[in-house]
């Protein structure tokens, strides 16, 4: 399977391990990723707070670049949920509106680009759960994560507003993947609840409350697994402040989905760059070490 790849800005900075583990996992699954040449920021959540047209033009620039890549016909794989929604929104909104496409293309003309409307943007979780599938992951598992309990955290923007590959309120697409690794599922209802997104930067008290509720519900799990760099950093970076507020002490391991899957498939913690995560506990690593002796 071949995909175009849009990493997005976070995956070059604070979420480098998401980029590295996504590439390593996809390669191990036999999928080929080609980075879109010259890609730029999708606008994140900032463009929508500033300008309606910019919200569409910034992602459309990348879709136009993707259309220029040869060979054509490959889906665009996006690991970041915010990038995914921004790119996908342009596809959804221009599908029925030539006026909107013309407006976007008037702006893109200064870059010498045209967006024709022929792209298909897919979230990483969509591709892993539907194109690759849990059975294909299970076939490659060499180190079952027996005894490790995992809470799947989906967040918002890979699920909503466009319900493409999962139930937008009660998602379950990660469950067969977790089962494939041999890990246990931490049953909870917080998987599709909001982490507060950029509130953590502008209204920290609000962000801490949302993250606190998620981390509290995750108690009993050995790790929370995410599919978005924003969710990831909100859950991993402020655990001390959350502890002061909620009284729930202790660090919770927060991993990206391809890191968890990769571990079970025999990729090393070093190759998956677990050292770059902000919250991986000694307890989790010890449990992971024990899986080696069991295997």
């Amino acid at each position: 399977m071949k995909y175009l790849y849009y990493p997005g800005c976070s995956l070059e900075g604070t979420a480098r391990e998401y980029d590295i583990s996504t590439r390593a996992f996809m390669a191990a699954m036999g999928a080929e990723l080609t980075e879109i040449e010259g890609w730029t920021c999708c606008g994140a959540s900032a463009a929508e707070a500033v300008s309606e047209l910019l919200t569409l033009v910034l992602p459309a620039r990348n879709l136009a670049l993707a259309e220029g890549m040869t060979p054509p016909g490959r889906d665009i794989l996006v690991p970041c949920s915010a990038c995914y929604l921004n790119l996908r929104r342009v596809e959804e909104k221009t599908r029925g509106s030539h006026d909107l496409k013309d407006r976007i293309n008037e702006a893109l003309a200064v870059e010498g680009l045209v967006y024709h409307g022929g792209t298909r943007t897919r979230h990483l979780l969509d591709v892993v759960s539907r194109d690759l599938g849990a059975a294909a992951v299970a076939r490659r598992v060499v180190r079952p994560l027996t005894g490790i309990r995992v809470a799947p955290y989906y967040g918002c923007q890979c699920l909503r507003p466009y319900a493409v590959f999962d139930d937008p309120e009660a998602p379950r697409s990660m469950e067969p993947l977790i089962a494939a690794t041999g890990a246990d599922l931490h049953p909870w209802t917080m998987g599709s609840k909001c982490c507060g997104a950029s509130h953590m930067n502008t209204k920290m008290e609000v962000g801490l409350k949302l993250v606190g509720a998620i981390l509290e519900a995750a108690q009993g799990a050995d790790a929370v697994v995410t599919v978005c760099p924003m969710c990831q950093i909100n859950l991993e970076a402020y655990q001390r402040q959350v502890a002061r507020q909620t009284g729930v002490a202790g660090t919770m391991t927060i991993l990206y989905l391809p890191q968890l899957l990769g571990l079970a498939m025999g990729l090393s913690p070093e190759a998956l760059r677990l050292d770059l995560n902000l919250a991986v506990t000694g307890g989790f690593l010890e449990k992971f070490r024990q899986t080696a002796t069991a295997a």
């Binding site: 929508e48 918002c156 909503r160 507003p161 319900a163 309120e169 909001c194």
Partner: peptide
Amino acid sequence: SACYMCTL
């Protein structure tokens, strides 16, 4: 925070 729950 653009969680889209109300929209949904």
